[in-house]
Computed example of a mutant assay.
Amino acid sequence: MTTDESALARELRADGIDVADVRLSPERVAVAYTTTLPAERPAHGEMGRVCNTVIDLVEDGDLEPLRVDATSLRFENDVQATWHVEAEWLDELTGYRISEEEFSARVLDTVETDPEVDRDADAPHAIVVADDEPGRPAGDGGSQ
């Protein structure tokens, strides 16, 4: 894996995602982004751009298939929704064992519009509770 948090944040921004925070561990990627469409449900186009960025990095060998936990923010500290991608879905998609339609359907099935979130006093936004990821101090994490 050659991608770090700053590089992932840059790639997401290059794909039009307003990144609030990125955290990368050996088990998962956590992304918080501010939506351009603050409706009740997250914009599918933004979800797709986050997924495509990760898929491209996996296909290029710059990122291992990892679970992706995403938090869509309406604005700072106002969570619109959470959603996720399982590592095995990325592996199946990039290995041509599932279609893009199947992958998308699985991701859309994970959307939670009333999620439980942990408000980290050191972070300027809410991050999804990751039960296997220990708390860590605020750092660059891709923040602007």
Rank of each mutant, 00 (worst) to 15 (best):
G45E: 15
H84A: 04
P137Q: 07
D69A: 09
D91T: 13
A43N: 09
V111M: 08
D132E: 03
S25K: 08
D56Q: 09
R13W: 01
G16K: 10
A39I: 11
D4Y: 03
A70D: 01
E100R: 08
D56I: 00
E112R: 07
I98N: 07
D62F: 11
A121Q: 06
Q80I: 13
R67G: 01
Y33P: 07
A39K: 11
L93V: 01
A9P: 13
A9G: 14
E40D: 09
V107M: 05
A81D: 14
P65M: 03
R67T: 03
L90N: 12
H84N: 10
L90G: 10
L63N: 03
R67Q: 05
E88Y: 13
I55E: 03
E40G: 12
L66M: 02
A20F: 03
L8W: 11
L12M: 08
C51P: 01
E100H: 01
P115L: 05
A87I: 09
I98D: 13
N52A: 02
G141S: 05
E40T: 15
R136E: 08
P42L: 03
P137R: 10
L63P: 03
L93A: 11
E112K: 05
Y96S: 14
T113W: 02
L66V: 04
V129M: 12
I17E: 07
E76G: 06
V117Y: 07
E116S: 09
D131K: 12
N52R: 04
W83D: 10
A20H: 09
P134T: 14
E102T: 06
V58T: 10
R97C: 12
T35I: 00
V117D: 00
V50Y: 05
T113H: 01
V58Y: 06
P115Y: 09
A121E: 06
V68A: 03
D21S: 09
A126V: 12
E86V: 08
V107Q: 02
P42V: 07
F103H: 02
D62M: 05
V85F: 00
L90H: 10
R97G: 11
P134A: 08
C51W: 08
F75I: 12
P26Q: 14
L8K: 13
L12F: 04
L90W: 07
E116L: 05
R136H: 13
I98F: 02
A87S: 10
